[in-house]
Design a protein around this nucleic acid. Structure first.
Length: 422
RNA sequence: GUGGGUGUAGCUCAGCAGGUUAGAGCGUCGGGUUGUGGCCCCGGAGGCCGUGAGUUCGAACCUCACCACUCACCCCA
């Protein structure tokens, strides 16, 4: 083996890919129910897009981006998250002119140069959802309802935590209060918090260190500093969540890693993923579109991690396989040739057909049929073929019936396809 | 970027205090059934024992370095 996959980059093998398809299918259906439409955007963007949206001093921008200089000198970056490219596309194509509220989703790979661990990779995949143009609390509740619907229809159980980060009107006062509090407690904080104090004060509230946690019990609460508008908004979101019977917990210590969030933020959490707890997260970003040079429109969105979702499904032994309809087991040259024609005609009519061309024993072919989880096996033997017949075996009931191999291939295959696909 | 753990067959792992031809289960291929899968029985293929150096009469096993994977910190989906 000369070349192996890069660190943090993983192959998704067929068995696992089936599980991914299940997740994607369920998600797409639900997004559709809420009126979200797919948008597909590039993986590569100008570096400035992410620097401006995510925040210059975030870990992502400072040290985790896959950035490089293009041949013409532009600094390009493989997207570390999905919101910025979607908003860029929204602005670039004036999508606000098309309808008052744009509900979009996209899915695909994201890239962050981190040290890999359970549920964390350098190339990972997200389903990312954005609702642009609405600032009503109803849309906040709706988007959380949608996220939890995906989770519950996947048969998973995670908890929803919410918070409000305020707006440019009320956050500065809270920030100041927090800074003052941290200054008073300087010296008794853990080294990490000491560092966060300057870089991202909000983050200290999320510290896992026990002594810090004990100390922060008395820290100023963002909830207490919300301006009347933000407080009202948050209250409305809460009451809708209750009305929709969506269980949640307010976590005043919850902060998000990206700078652009305002007001409502939320996380879908589990404790079944090792150190990783979030399977999905998001929030409101009311100033972001304008900040990126677009119209002054509010927005809210969230992302779910495909690896984390499939990890949770796999943890509960969830399996998914792709079964075929018919395996054609041919015995002998003439049967093989006939089988090729039958298989093609059936496939043209929507039937999933597999056969083996190597002239293996019937036993071996039966095993292959079982491995493909085939519903039927059509056994074409030399004796039957001479009499214009074959044997159709139902792999579950073990019932076998003779079938006539009509010379009229089209009529024959149409009839059989109709029966199989019924 | 910082720590811990682990590297033996395609997969999961044994390998007793260093001793000759390195094992099991699963999978795979073939046979038992001139033409019938998931159970059973028999057999075959498949290993630079992560890489390199060292200690030793002798190393999968001990030492060191490197590499890879993995878990955790940090951060996040």
């Amino acid at each position: 083996m000369i070349v192996k996959a890069l660190k943090g980059f993983k192959d998704i093998l067929p068995d696992e890919a089936n599980l991914w398809q299940d997740v994607e299918r369920v998600a797409r259906q639900i997004f559709h129910r809420f009126g979200y439409r797919e948008i597909r955007v590039p993986i590569l963007e100008k570096t400035g897009l992410f620097a401006r949206s995510i925040g210059e001093t975030t870990d992502i921008v400072e040290k985790e981006m896959y950035s490089f200089t293009d041949r013409n000198g532009d600094s390009l970056t493989m997207r570390p998250e999905g919101t910025a490219p979607v908003l860029r596309a929204f602005i670039e194509h004036n999508l606000q002119a098309e309808r008052p509220v744009q509900k979009l989703y996209t899915m695909g790979p994201m890239f962050r140069h981190e040290r890999p661990q359970k549920g964390r990779l350098r190339q990972f995949h997200q389903m990312s959802v954005e609702a642009i143009g609405a600032d009503q609390p109803e849309i906040d509740a709706e988007i959380m309802a949608m996220a939890s619907m995906v989770i519950s229809e996947l048969g998973l159980d995670v908890s929803l935590e919410i918070n409000s980060l305020g707006c440019p009107k009320c956050r500065p006062a809270f920030n100041q209060a927090l800074l003052d509090f941290l200054a008073e407690n300087a010296g008794s904080l853990c080294p990490d918090c000491e560092r966060r104090r300057y870089k991202n004060p909000l983050r200290v509230l999320d510290c896992k260190n026990k002594t810090c946690q004990a100390r922060y019990v008395n820290a100023p609460s963002i909830q207490a500093h919300l301006c009347p508008e933000c407080a009202a908004h948050f209250q409305a979101v809460e009451s809708y969540l209750k009305a929709l019977d969506i269980r949640y917990k307010v976590n005043p210590f919850m902060v998000r890693g990206l700078d652009y969030y305002t007001r409502t933020t939320f996380e879908l959490l589990t404790n079944a993923l090792g150190a990783q707890s979030a399977v999905g997260a998001g929030g409101r970003y009311d100033g972001l579109i304008e900040q990126l040079g677009g119209p002054a429109l509010p927005g809210i969105g969230f992302a779910m991690g495909l690896e984390r979702l499939t990890l949770l499904l796999a943890a509960q032994q969830r399996k998914s396989s792709q079964r075929i309809d018919i395996f054609i087991a041919a015995l002998g040259g003439a049967a093989l040739e006939r089988g090729v024609l039958l298989a093609h005609a059936l496939r043209q009519r929507g039937v999933a057909v597999v056969m083996d061309y190597a002239g293996r024993s019937l036993k071996s072919q039966m095993k292959q049929a079982a491995r493909h989880d085939s519903r039927f096996t059509l056994i074409i033997g030399e004796n039957e073929l001479a009499g214009g017949q074959a044997v159709m075996r139902d792999m579950e009931s073990h019932e076998q019936v003779d079938v006539i191999l009509s010379e009229d291939l089209a009529t024959w295959s149409t009839a059989l396809a109709k029966k199989i696909l019924a």
